[in-house]
Design a protein around this nucleic acid. Structure first.
Lengths: 210, 210
DNA sequence: TAGCAGTTCATACGTTTGTATGATATGATA
DNA sequence: TATCATATCATACAAACGTATGAACTGCTA
């Protein structure tokens, strides 16, 4: 844990790592402060509670991701190309925030209400992707079906593949920390999403505007 | 909690529900025994420890799933059909064991070594699916690419869609507990996997044996 | 130098945790 | 009825937990 960072930042960094690895409940305030080289009271002082620190950790990755994907969704490219960009952006964001899929997975698995930043990012991304899919269905480039389910598949594949990094390492011998393996995985998911959504029949020519 | 079941079975049932909803660490032995209408000492008596009860819960769904998918994989059908059957079997198993994806997601997210029944079922399924994919690539019905990554996508989509049931309910208004919604989701995943793996070009005729 | 806000520190408190213990109850067998 | 393994029960215990408290330290401003 870098001593150069402020105590508050060190706490966030330590908490992110420990929450992702062991979950909220199995991570003690004592473990966090020890890893951050901070005093036991530091969490209460800087954040008020362990819960509040947890929410801070989540906001750190959730808000930028929502913004990033919204920007991609607004690009002036064909729907399938934009969806490929969404997948690339998603995975790129995950590679630089490896804790994200683990924290999200735990929250999705949980009975507790979703922390609001997570609920927010899921809602925004699902809507943005659904809109792209619907647009592609209108112009015939994407096959028919419920856009919301397509959206779950588009977002779910990057999330799950990252989450299963461990299993992938065992099954393929490739370490997802290695850039070559990362781009292999990225290209796989992009190709899979593209092939999964594309209209098999050559897209019928959309009626030209009068 | 049905009183008709043996105390041991009631403990497993209660534990499965609570572990899935709150995770291992946030579930207390007291909560389990209260839900099972059993005495506090019952977990120690019947299983030896909370950990051992957890492992019992996991084995209950992991072993049957591995057997089931292995049977499907051995069927004498074309590779793409067998993969569709794998997806259906996977989802069918999940619908009757809704706790499964939640428990698996938590384990995949965790730093701890995978409990052996989970590691076992992952390994067996990944191998079985990879073999089908490789076979399909040989006969030209499945597009080229690393079979292990295809396997992760095939298994990951049912798992993730089930895990995201909550988000799906919010986004689509459909409750995955409803059979109609279930078959909608099942058919979506089947179609998605099929389209994602199929060779876009018409399969080249395999050389006939001499 | 005095004062003060911001931060760090050691320590204490009341809960909750998983497990151990020994007494009691139950139901089949002798 | 006596015996015995199996099961249930109420308690006890030490450890770990999140948080609160008040003293000590820090660096800046008056």
């Amino acid at each position: 844990m870098r001593r150069s960072l402020s105590s508050r930042e060190r706490l966030i960094e330590a908490a992110r790592h420990l929450f992702a690895g062991a979950g909220f409940d199995a991570t003690s305030v004592r473990a966090i402060t020890a890893r951050a080289h901070a005093n036991l009271g530091a969490v209460t002082y800087h954040f008020g509670s362990k819960q509040a620190l947890y929410h801070t950790v989540i906001e750190r990755f959730a808000l930028p991701l929502a913004d990033r994907l919204a920007a991609i969704a607004a690009e002036p490219a064909p729907p399938l190309e934009r969806l490929a960009s969404v997948v690339r952006g998603f995975l790129d964001h995950i590679w630089s925030h490896p804790e994200m899929p683990r924290l999200i997975a735990r929250e999705l698995a949980s009975d507790r209400p979703l922390p609001s930043p997570i609920a927010h990012v899921i809602r925004r991304n699902a809507e943005a992707i659904s809109r792209i899919v619907a647009e592609g269905q209108r112009d015939g480039s994407i096959r028919p079906g419920p856009p919301q389910l397509f959206a779950m598949s588009v977002a779910g594949q990057p999330l799950f593949l990252a989450l299963a990094g461990r299993a992938i390492r065992e099954a393929t011998g490739k370490d997802p920390a290695d850039p070559a393996a990362r781009s292999l995985i990225t290209e796989h998911v992009v190709a899979n999403v593209r092939a999964g959504l594309a209209n098999a029949a050559p897209a019928p020519v959309a009626e030209t505007a009068p």
